[in-house]
Amino acid sequence: MRVFPVYAPKLIVKHARIFLTGVIWVKDLGRLEFEKGRFLLPRKSLPKVKQAILELNELIEAQN
């Protein structure tokens, strides 16, 4: 598990694309899981977490 002390979308996306499957922890967002290079949306999450995951997945799609 990698810990990101700040929310840096480009760096987080780079990590997810390299490792494809895993878990990261982002300060103020908490634990985020990714599989096959995409972030998974938890069943229950705060609106800011949901927005961050959608933003990260959009960045991943834009890079493909």
Rank of each mutant, 00 (worst) to 15 (best):
M1C: 15
M1H: 14
M1W: 00
M1A: 15
M1I: 15
R2G: 07
R2I: 15
R2F: 15
R2Y: 15
R2P: 15
R2L: 15
V3F: 15
V3L: 02
V3D: 07
F4Q: 00
F4V: 02
P5C: 15
P5G: 09
Y7W: 13
Y7R: 01
A8T: 13
P9L: 03
K10D: 10
K10T: 14
K10C: 13
K10I: 12
L11C: 11
L11M: 08
L11I: 08
I12M: 05
I12F: 02
V13H: 02
V13N: 02
V13P: 00
V13A: 13
K14L: 10
K14H: 11
K14V: 09
H15Y: 07
H15K: 02
H15V: 05
H15E: 04
A16T: 11
A16Y: 03
A16F: 03
A16D: 00
R17F: 09
R17L: 13
R17W: 07
I18D: 12
I18Q: 14
F19A: 14
F19M: 10
T21E: 10
G22M: 04
G22Y: 03
V23L: 10
V23M: 09
V23N: 06
I24Y: 02
I24T: 02
I24F: 05
W25R: 05
K27H: 15
K27V: 15
D28M: 12
D28P: 14
D28E: 09
L29W: 05
L29Y: 06
L29Q: 00
R31V: 07
R31N: 04
L32M: 14
L32S: 01
E33V: 14
E33A: 14
E33D: 14
E33W: 15
E33I: 14
E33Y: 15
F34N: 00
F34V: 04
F34T: 00
F34Y: 05
E35I: 12
E35S: 11
E35Y: 13
K36D: 09
K36S: 12
K36A: 12
K36Q: 13
G37T: 07
G37V: 06
G37E: 05
G37M: 09
G37F: 04
R38M: 11
R38G: 04
R38L: 10
F39Y: 04
F39V: 02
F39K: 02
L40W: 05
L40Y: 06
L40K: 13
L40P: 04
L41I: 11
L41A: 09
P42W: 06
R43V: 06
R43I: 05
K44S: 07
K44W: 10
K44N: 07
K44P: 05
K44R: 13
S45G: 08
S45I: 11
S45D: 05
L46N: 11
L46S: 13
P47S: 12
P47L: 13
K48M: 09
K48R: 12
K48L: 08
V49H: 05
V49I: 14
V49K: 12
V49A: 05
K50L: 07
K50A: 05
K50V: 08
K50C: 06
Q51S: 09
A52K: 08
A52P: 01
A52E: 02
A52C: 07
A52S: 06
A52D: 01
I53S: 03
I53T: 05
I53N: 00
I53Y: 04
I53W: 04
L54H: 12
L54P: 01
L54C: 07
L54V: 08
E55L: 08
E55R: 07
L56P: 01
L56V: 03
L56G: 02
N57E: 03
E58M: 10
E58D: 09
E58T: 12
E58S: 13
E58W: 09
L59V: 09
L59R: 05
I60C: 05
I60W: 13
I60E: 03
E61K: 09
A62Q: 13
Q63D: 14
Q63S: 11
N64F: 05
N64Y: 04
